[in-house]
Design a protein around this nucleic acid. Structure first.
Length: 350
DNA sequence: TCTGGGGTCCTAGGACCC
DNA sequence: TCTGGGGTCCTAGGACCC
């Protein structure tokens, strides 16, 4: 039998900010784009629990956050700071796991099947890990324990902050079925809307929906979701990971139809991407550009080369060629981006 | 309300090869 | 003169996650 932990750091960005600057402790903190007195473009990355009391949430437009709480403390993200904190914590987590998988800057899965003989022992280990992170890093996390990744993940979100939720195999359905279907990872806003139209409101409803209905609507993804809804998830905790693509996007502060500006920004993006490619000893075969117009209509164009390369000029020239047709309409542009994929590792990644 | 920036995965049509 | 089946790659778009 497997025992999986999902560890999720609580309000990670604001918590790290408050740790670095004690004056901020206890204040409503919003990390994200510059609100610019309510005119700012961009979204909330993460809000402290004090700020959440005003209704502010991750991914909310920063302009809306400003309306909800003009007196909150607004901070630009400081990723260097978060990466250091994150890697210290990941080191702690790794030391307690048979297998360890980082699932983002602020979360990780641990397979602890050989470290705990049963869920009671798993609970003790989870508590120990929470205390260790609190004592050594002065940051709080929430932990979910379950027989697989999906149950552990949903459990870690069940009680926050500094919550510990253990769901044994026999309790999985009783735990999942009453939850709102949107709590299931993989059910985003669009899928949730489609499901609600079918009167599928809880995870239990999804579990008892006719498979044909789900296949018709969502294809193979529908079947995967239904397995998740039943608490079935065979995915392993995966130790090592290969990057599949590297890219950069920029949203203009003001929508632009200035060709010189757009090409200059495209060049900068290509250079940044190239730097990442080279420093990771990679080569790429496919180049993709992205254009977003003011009403969020988004297009991509890509080109695969005959051979992998790491040449900056090839990247720049192809990006320029791919984006050129979008410049002709004289329409304003909100965002442009460059991405490379089909990556070749010249050395095995560590 | 008006939507960042870093990614992953899936779909579907078409080209091409055997 | 009408045209299979399987596999893989390319391209564009879309949903989702943190």
């Amino acid at each position: 039998m497997r025992i999986i932990l999902h560890v999720d750091l609580d309000a990670f960005f604001p918590s790290v900010e408050a740790r670095a600057n004690p004056e901020l402790k206890g204040k409503p903190l919003v990390v994200g784009a510059d609100p610019k007195e309510g005119q700012g473009r961009g979204v909330v990355s993460s809000a402290s629990y004090e700020a959440r009391n005003f209704g502010i949430k991750s991914a909310m437009p920063i302009s809306r956050a400003w309306k909800l709480c003009p007196d909150c403390v607004y901070l630009r993200p400081n990723f260097e700071l978060y990466v250091v904190a994150s890697s210290n914590i990941m080191k702690i987590l790794k030391s307690h796991a048979d297998k360890f998988e980082q699932g983002g800057i602020d979360e990780a899965y641990l397979d602890i099947s050989s470290k705990a003989n049963n869920f009671a022992e798993a609970r003790d280990l989870a508590r120990k890990i929470m205390d260790e992170i609190l004592n050594q890093e002065h940051l709080s996390c929430s932990v979910g324990v379950g027989p697989n990744k999906i149950v552990a993940k949903i459990a870690s979100d069940f009680r926050k902050p500094f919550g510990l939720t253990v769901v044994e195999e026999k309790d999985v359905k009783g735990f999942l079925y009453p939850l709102k279907v949107g709590k299931l990872p993989g059910v985003g806003p669009k899928t949730e809307r489609s499901l609600l139209e079918l009167k599928i409101e809880t995870i239990g409803d999804l579990a008892s929906t006719k498979p044909e209905t789900l296949t018709r609507l969502f294809g193979v993804w529908g079947m995967r979701l239904q397995k998740f809804a039943n608490g079935v998830d065979e995915r392993e905790v995966i130790e090592e990971y290969e990057t599949k693509s590297i890219g950069r996007d920029v949203t203009f502060e003001k929508d632009s139809d200035d060709e010189n500006q757009i090409f200059a920004v495209l060049n900068d993006l290509a250079e940044d991407v190239h730097e990442d490619v080279v420093s990771n000893a990679l080569k790429f075969k496919t180049i993709t550009i992205r254009v977003r117009y003011p009403h969020f209509e988004t297009h991509t164009r890509s080109k695969s080369l005959m051979f992998p390369t790491d040449d900056l000029d090839i990247l720049r020239n192809n990006a320029k060629r791919l984006i050129a047709p979008f410049m002709r309409g004289r329409k304003k542009v909100r965002l442009i981006g460059v991405r490379v994929s089909n990556l070749i590792y010249q050395f095995k990644p560590m």
